[in-house]
Design a protein around this nucleic acid. Structure first.
Lengths: 194, 194
DNA sequence: CGATTTACATACAGTCTGTATGTATGTGAT
DNA sequence: ATCACATACATACAGACTGTATGTAAATCG
């Protein structure tokens, strides 16, 4: 047996280290918030050194960005795993969104801390508009001759309503009334052809 | 002339110093975000020392809380200054809210950074539920036999929609489409007596 | 007019951030 | 296989920052 050191490929080392750092950082960011979280604390939890952290990430904000990006990816995956192009895409979509958003800490990361630390513009880039894009196309289909500015306003505000509901549900509120209420709102908003 | 030092009352000194600190802190918190703002920077802008800051406030977060509290008070005052118990309290209220929220930085402080740093619970305590409370009573009046859980869900989600609109408008979007769209949403939500 | 409290400045100890530097290990060309 | 180089990390360091302890003048109060 000559394998003195097993020779782990760099790509694997990278991925494993980043995953460790992101997992540890995610937990602590959630526990104490971005500002109160220190990098020594993170690397201690990940059982590595700050050298590793600053090798892979430019600074603390960059690591936070990685955490948020990973969370957004997990959300997207969870949603279209549950995506079942069923009869009622709206109700189905709402439920899937709320369920995916109920993962512990996810709503806070994506809807509260993320926007505050990274800004809305960057958050929009990270989550590719979230569910807002699909909401907009759904609405434009239901109400084809709505003023474009109003369509946009509707998509933005209704999307915010969904996000707030997701936050409430993630913090323990029952989902049913929110699903009911939001569906009614969206449907009535679509009936602007009168 | 015997007045060697003019004798400024303590209450006035306090108020003046706090106002200086809050004004300086507000500006820098807005420029760089909570985490990247340092207390030396704040006191330099306010032309005082850190001794003054830590005399009046427990820590950086406590000063931030004071900034947010002052902002919430300014918002409330701006709103009910414009409060004109006119014919249409809803449209009137929306416009007043958006206008008051358009003060530079206000939306970000109250809707983005505040919740992230202080948490939603404390923000709710500070702004006494914001416009959500009035929204709820308005809705409960318009739709008296709506399930209480759904009424609450409606108040929370619609309030979030208003907040998001305020943020968009504060960042330069035109108010008109948001006012139109939100009024339609609220009215149609009130028509749940069918 | 003392005694005490309040308002603030200064000094200090510990921690944190980001960088510079050093070393081992993987990688690609010859 | 080997050599040159790049990558992955650890360690060391300089400055900045946070919160506290301490000192002093001015205001308040009996």
């Amino acid at each position: 047996m000559q394998e003195k050191h097993e020779a782990i490929p760099n790509a694997d080392r990278r991925a494993a280290m980043k995953a460790r750092l992101i997992a540890a950082a995610r937990q602590i960011f959630l526990d104490k918030g971005y500002a109160e979280t220190s990098t020594p604390e993170i690397v201690k939890a990940a059982e590595v050194t700050r050298g590793a952290l600053y090798h892979h990430y430019k600074d603390k904000e960059d690591l936070f960005r990685a955490v948020v990006t990973a969370e957004a990816a997990a959300l997207a995956q969870a949603i279209d795993t549950a995506a079942d192009p069923d009869e009622n895409p709206l109700a189905q979509g709402s439920a899937a969104y709320f369920e995916a958003m109920a993962a512990p800490g996810r709503a806070r990361l994506l809807l509260v801390d993320g926007p505050a630390v990274l800004g809305w513009d960057e958050m929009d880039a990270i989550d590719a508009g979230g569910g807002r894009a699909s909401l907009r196309v759904g609405l434009s289909h239901a109400a084809p001759d709505l003023d474009p500015a109003e369509l946009e306003a509707l998509a933005i505000t209704l999307s915010a309503a969904y996000d707030r509901a997701a936050l409430a549900i993630a913090e323990g509120a029952k989902a049913a009334p929110y699903i009911t209420v939001l569906e009614r709102l969206v449907v009535s908003a679509g009936e602007e052809n009168r």
